[in-house]
Nucleic acid binder design. Structure first.
Length: 761
DNA sequence: AAGGCCAGAGTTTTT
DNA sequence: CTCTGGCCTT
């Protein structure tokens, strides 16, 4: 115990050792949040207040869940495997597997990822002859997920007009289709769990009695349904330990509701509120910048980070004339950092939107600096992997129509669009899955489809006793996937990925502890059957509160869940020491010695779309706050006068966030020059910029009219500061489009408008 | 069944 | 500009 609590600061110690009551921990960036959360769990267990089985710990990402589990395992000599530590979705999956009958799901129900969900919706719209111009699949998907995340079924959604009514109607049909196929989307995992717990008193009481301590990470990111779910599980007597940071709430656009923090405090009558404000990550100037910036937000719960680390270096700011030059400057700075011995992997380049990485990547590539971009395609989302998974899905649940359609003719086996149409008609007519409808198709189409069914049947039943990785291997052969990619010229990489899938299966089996001898199938009984609705009040399986849940999943089912819930790595070239490139969003939770925040311009960061939305600007500011607090020792911020966007140059003002930072913590690297002598002074100031770059810049700025220049900053009495975007006409008939940011784009006569030159920062 | 062509869009993302 | 999706042609 001494060990556990050793080295905690007073606030951390207080949080970890709080009594068994609801608590809210306001944990600032870099304040040791994960440490507090895991130590709290360890302390509760070690002091005998709760058994490992009585803990429910929820996170948003698999990464966070794994981190928590492994840290806990290092603190205590316990088996963490059976513990309920995981993501909302992962835990709900576990729950639904154990109670699939009560949840009215087939035992081998499968999980749709967002791509699967979208293609399912497209397929449905087509079958219903719905105009997908009028009802775009994406909008319908958004509508459905949104409703589910508020806990609403189709019949609960209020249709306020005809257009909306159609969405509701389609939502209902979509749910029926999912039910028929035995598949659930991400939101459904949560909603189904919530509904089952709501209506089944025995189940609810069982789990409420079991989870005495509920701990939630990143509470500011919870959506409405997740909050309701927590409330339900907490019941009257369990303690909820919520850790979050309202200043780092950056996911409102996907349904997160920061308001849940205040709601939690109020509705749970939280007596224990602890702020973790001691920052162990960043030097003083960096923290000052973060604190001063975020203070511009209203409606904060209130928090100020402090450090013992001293001021450190000021935040370096650079203004460039173009995005190309911004990248060029970045390269030079990175080079000198590397010369000083900084690690490449400890330097991050952040940007607001993915499109911005292009120019930077190009420059890094040319300079020969290894880099790694986060956010690419993930392993389980690759086409060849999706195909292989579809075969596995059919083996596990042949009524999954999405899986069926994906591979029925891949590799090509002469089953064309006409055969599929016939099959779909038959399926609709008999109200059954495509797979089940095959015997109802006659003729040539029927026999080729029959061949496919026999193939799947063979794969399903021949290998029942094989370990999972053998099943995967056999499937790759029998399906003809390997053979197909062998004939393709670019197929080598894909085959390599398919082989990696076998390794992934092997790794999964060893990590999840499925015995090597365990059959990959639970047997024919495990066939998908759209079960009857739950009989209310049905006796609940008795589960020993201390025993891990019975493994009701076959290894194959479990592996498929794993593939959907954990799409895998989404970073390229992992492993080697490389510069880290990512959006600010994906940087959340990470930290680096040196950080570059690039593209700090009005319209980009804050993003123009966000400035329209209610509360959008505050979210952008929080995003900026997240970006700043990623840096340990050195922080750079850069912005550019021009930037190529959608194929044309845009002239932006520097981000308003610069005006919200403390001058004392800033160091401007670029000279504060007078605009009229712009080129001459720039040239001398940027001697280290390659000649070609300077020439390109010069060319883009040679156009002058009535003494004004494109790209120049001006001030107007009414509209404030703006940038000249274009100039038309000349002499006495000369007008200019000027971007005044907040006030929008104005067309002004340069001979009439009273404009002043702005000496740029 | 595959490749070519054109229109249209173009924040942020995990599960 | 650059990627995607849908449609049309071979």
């Amino acid at each position: 115990m001494q060990n556990l609590l050793h080295n905690l600061n007073p606030e951390q110690l207080a949080a970890v050792t709080l009594p068994s009551q609801h608590a809210m921990i306001l944990a600032g960036a870099g304040s040791g949040k994960t440490r507090v959360l895991t130590t709290r769990i360890a302390w509760l267990i070690q002091t005998g207040q709760v058994s490992p089985a009585g803990i429910l710990a929820v996170t948003f990402t698999n990464k966070a869940a794994k981190e928590m589990t492994s840290r806990l395992g290092a603190m205590l000599p316990i088996n963490t495997r059976g513990m309920w530590i995981g993501t909302f979705h992962g835990l709900c999956n576990r729950f639904l597997r154990a109670h699939y009958r009560d949840a009215a799901l087939p035992q081998s129900f499968q999980i749709l990822d967002s791509g699967d969900q979208l293609s399912m919706i497209k397929r449905m719209l087509k079958a219903l002859n719905v105009d997908d111009e009028k009802y775009p699949p994406r909008n319908l998907m958004y509508f459905i997920n949104n409703a589910k995340e508020q806990g609403l079924r189709a019949q609960d959604v209020e249709a306020y007009d005809d257009y909306n009514r159609k969405f509701v109607e389609l939502y209902d049909i979509y749910d029926q289709q999912c039910q028929r196929e035995g598949v659930v989307d991400f939101a459904e995992l949560l909603l189904r769990t919530y509904e089952l717990l709501s209506r089944s008193q025995p189940l609810r009481e069982h789990y409420q009695a079991r989870f005495r301590h509920i701990l939630v990470d990143e509470f500011q990111d919870t959506n409405d349904l997740q909050y309701k779910w927590l409330k339900l599980l907490a019941g009257q007597s369990n303690a909820v330990f919520a850790v979050g940071d309202d200043d780092q709430s950056i996911y409102a656009f996907r349904g997160a509701n920061v308001g849940n923090m205040a709601a939690f405090e109020r509705e749970f009558r939280v007596q224990n509120l602890i702020k973790l404000e001691q920052n162990y990550r960043s030097h003083g100037h960096i923290l000052d910048a973060a604190n001063t910036l975020i203070a511009h937000n209203t409606r904060r719960l209130g928090k100020n980070l402090r450090t013992d680390a001293g001021h450190g270096e000021p935040v370096r700011i650079f203004e460039s004339s173009s995005d190309l030059q911004e990248a060029q400057w970045l390269i030079e700075e990175v080079k000198s950092l590397l010369n000083e011995g900084w690690m490449r992997s400890e330097i991050a380049v952040l940007y607001r939107s993915n499109a911005q990485s292009r120019v930077i990547e190009h420059a890094l590539f040319t300079a020969g600096i290894p880099y790694r971009v986060y956010g690419g395609q993930r392993f389980f989302e690759r086409a060849e992997i999706k195909h292989a998974i579809a075969y596995l899905q059919l083996m596990d649940n042949p009524h999954n129509d999405s899986a069926f359609l994906r591979v029925v003719n891949f590799p090509a086996r002469g089953i064309g669009a006409r055969s599929i149409e016939q099959l779909q008609d038959a399926a609709r007519q008999h109200g059954m899955s495509l797979y089940a409808a095959v015997p109802h198709v006659s003729g040539k189409a029927g026999s080729s489809l029959g061949g496919f069914v026999r193939l799947v049947e063979r794969m399903r039943f021949e290998n029942q006793t094989m370990p999972l990785q053998e099943v995967v291997k056999a499937m790759l052969d029998a399906s003809g996937l390997i053979a197909h990619y062998q004939t393709e010229k670019e197929g080598a990489d894909r085959i390599e990925n398919l082989e990696q899938l076998v390794s992934a299966a092997m790794l999964f089996v060893s990590e999840e502890g499925f015995g090597i001898d365990a059959p990959a199938f639970a047997g024919p009984k495990a066939q998908a059957v759209a079960g009857p609705a739950l009989v209310d009040g049905e006796e609940v399986e008795v589960i020993d509160a201390d025993a891990p849940l019975p493994t009701v999943m076959s290894p194959l089912s479990a592996f498929l869940s794993h593939a959907s819930l954990e799409a895998g790595d989404n970073q390229a070239q992992a492993g080697q020491d490389a510069l880290q490139l990512m959006t600010v969003h994906s940087a959340k939770g990470l930290e680096f010695d040196a950080v570059f925040i690039t593209g700090l311009e009005e319209g980009l960061f804050p993003h123009e779309n966000s400035t329209q939305e209610e509360g959008g600007l505050e979210e952008e500011r929080r995003l900026m706050y997240v970006a700043i607090t990623r840096a340990r020792k050195r922080l750079y911020m850069s912005f550019s006068q021009t930037r190529m966007l959608h194929g044309q140059s845009r002239y932006n003002m520097r981000s308003r966030f610069f005006d919200e930072l403390p001058d004392a913590s800033l160091k401007w690297l670029s000279p504060r020059v007078q605009q009229h002598s712009w080129f001459a002074q720039r040239k001398t100031a940027w001697d280290d910029v390659p000649e070609a770059g300077v020439n390109a810049i010069a060319q883009s700025f040679t156009r002058k009219d009535a003494g004004w220049r494109i790209g120049e900053s001006v001030a107007h009495a009414k509209f404030g500061e703006g940038v000249i975007v274009s100039i038309e006409g000349s002499g006495t008939n000369c007008r200019a489009h000027i971007n005044f940011g907040k006030h929008g784009m104005k067309l002004l006569d340069l001979n009439i408008a009273k404009l002043e030159r702005v000496a740029k920062a």
